[in-house]
Design a protein around this nucleic acid. Sequence first.
DNA 1: CCCTAAACTAAGCGATTGCTTAGAAATAAA
DNA 2: TTTATTTCTAAGCAATCGCTTAGTTTAGGG
Lengths: 187, 187
Amino acid sequence: MARKKQYDEVEVIDKAMRLFWRNGYENTSVRMLEKAMGINQFSIYASFKNKQGVFLESVKHYKTQIKSITDKLEQSNNGVTGIQEYFHDFLEFSKEASVFKGCLVTNTVNEIKEDADPIIMQELKKFSLHIKSLFVRNLKQDDLGSVEDVNKLADYLMNCILGLSISSKVFDKTQLSSMIEITFKRL
Amino acid sequence: MARKKQYDEVEVIDKAMRLFWRNGYENTSVRMLEKAMGINQFSIYASFKNKQGVFLESVKHYKTQIKSITDKLEQSNNGVTGIQEYFHDFLEFSKEASVFKGCLVTNTVNEIKEDADPIIMQELKKFSLHIKSLFVRNLKQDDLGSVEDVNKLADYLMNCILGLSISSKVFDKTQLSSMIEITFKRL
DNA sequence: CCCTAAACTAAGCGATTGCTTAGAAATAAA
DNA sequence: TTTATTTCTAAGCAATCGCTTAGTTTAGGG
């Protein structure tokens, strides 16, 4: 009994994610979400409770989207080379109409203050730990020293790809490529 | 003739800068600026025209503050070693009460959309070009290949320190130190 | 001492924020 | 077809946003 939803929740969240990705959390208003998602405020709040709910669902969706390249990394069994490819894959992934948007998670970590929204912050930290674990996994495939050394290398690579998330907004493609090259050159 | 200002414009901008640094541009309201600067809205708008004016003046002030460590780098005549020291100096510089705030400029680049505020964006890009030129200068002091190679290395180091601006908010001091170590290890 | 110009206080402007609600429209079971 | 239940539209809520303005206080030159 009763009426059916006239929209697909996954479809509208995809639109929301792209908007958050471009504009950040605070700079995306519910009015903007309305237009981008193609449904009105009542439906947004009915489906996702509040703005934070829309964002958390967007992050979940982001994870499923980025899974295409993290899976490739995980299945590469390719050591450092696989990670280097992941860097390039990430740049391609974060591009929309020749504009680099960075990483949705990184962007938000940089925007939100820890104590202001601990729920979001916790979700974001969990994600970055996951990426680091993938780096550790691939680093172990090559012979790069002790467990501690590998852990440090993973941190180093995390720093580099976090940097790339910002750099991609400022530097051009040639510069980004040589940055990646040098990052892995003497590893 | 007429009354004197009851506040020092440099003093209040220092307070404003610290607030922007902690909270970002959009997440700092004029009401918050009022309280932090210790003057009311009329005085803010009289002295700095608008919120953007307060921010631009804050960035100017930020440059004079960070000058203490960029000058040290410039005068080091120390090649790569000087840059590595700059990385550590920057971390110390960006710390307030054991909390890393990152780089005010980097934070804002990540927050503001290019077309939304081109005046601010232009100012921020100018700053990062200045830092890069300091890296180039010091890299030339060591024998590290052609002008093109040096330029690429400077881009690489820019990427690493941009990363550090974010990493410092997430990773701990030990991790940050080993990131820097690896960044310069095989340079 | 008076007058004028600048700096102050405090109230409030319209616009926008996230969110809610009243009522109409739609759909499936009875 | 009627009835129950949910989704829709559209208007509007209080709070906050950046910013302005009217009216008072302060100070230096004539």
